[in-house]
């Protein structure tokens, strides 16, 4: 592991991803290179069909690239087995989805503790850590509630707690405010902001909304499977303070 790799949370070199849809090859990604440092807050912006979801799946190790290299927290993912990839997702990456993806009929506490189950953490410790994670997103009073008993905003905060309970290096949020009203959306974004600055987890936000992307210090615009614009390139560092948010239009 080189020194350069070790200080990047995610480092992609010339990633491509091709699908076969009814025998027709579709190039979702056509060569994407990017580097996201530890503790960065990045938004990946693009219209639907731009390849941003594919990129997120690759960055989250849910999928393997057709070609190119991807290092996650310094580890080259192409050399990992499926089991090792699962472990990498479990320990290094946290996911937040547009539709929350909470297990129905399961309490908030149990939902949050789920990633720890796959890490072999004992039940008592799982509960302690899940409780702390729920308190960190302001849901200390909702531990035993089920998803159906909570508002959308609360459900998404449970999902954020679940993403963070394993203390990941990278949090991947796919349209986290897409199913929320403005007020709840703002609340969720505020939590992501705070977590990024407090705990130093790198946050990668996938969105098509410029206002949401504006929370990030760096925007990466994706179109037709390629990076169209990366605001980090303007300053030459991965730590730009630029907050123009209007890069897309």
């Amino acid at each position: 592991m080189t020194a350069a790799a070790s200080d990047a949370a995610l480092e992609a070199v010339d990633l491509t991803r091709r699908y076969q849809l009814d025998g027709v090859a579709v190039e979702a990604l056509r060569g994407v290179s990017l580097r996201i440092g530890r503790g960065e807050f990045v938004a990946i912006i693009g219209p639907s069909g731009s390849g941003k979801s594919t990129l997120m799946h690759l960055l989250g190790c849910l999928d393997r690239p057709t070609s190119g290299r991807l290092r996650v927290n310094g580890v080259e993912m192409s050399q990992l087995s499926d089991t090792q990839l699962a472990e990498l997702r479990n320990k290094t990456i946290g996911f937040v989805f547009q539709s929350f993806h909470l297990l129905a009929r399961t309490t908030a506490l149990e939902n949050v503790a789920l990633p720890l189950v796959y890490r072999g953490v004992g039940k008592a410790e799982r509960r302690t850590r899940a409780r702390a994670a729920l308190e960190a997103v302001g849901l200390g009073h909702r531990m035993e509630h089920r998803p159906s008993q909570m508002s959308g905003g609360e459900q998404q905060r449970v999902a954020i707690a679940r993403a963070l309970v394993g203390e990941p290096k990278v949090l991947l949020a796919d349209e986290p405010t897409g199913n929320l009203d403005t007020r709840n959306g703002a609340e969720v974004m505020a939590i992501l902001d705070r977590l990024n600055s407090d705990s130093g987890v790198a946050v990668v936000l996938v969105t098509h909304e410029p206002e949401v992307a504006g929370h990030a210090r760096r925007q990466i615009h994706v179109r037709d499977g390629l990076i169209e614009l990366d605001t980090a390139d303007r300053t030459g560092t991965g730590e730009t303070e630029q907050r123009d948010g209007g890069g897309a239009g």
Partner: peptide, 16 residues
């Protein structure tokens, strides 16, 4: 299926 996908995203191995 969605539950399985979620569990895998959270680190469930094929075996789990």
């Amino acid at each position: 299926t969605r539950e399985i996908g979620l569990r895998k995203a959270l680190g469930a191995r094929q075996r789990d």
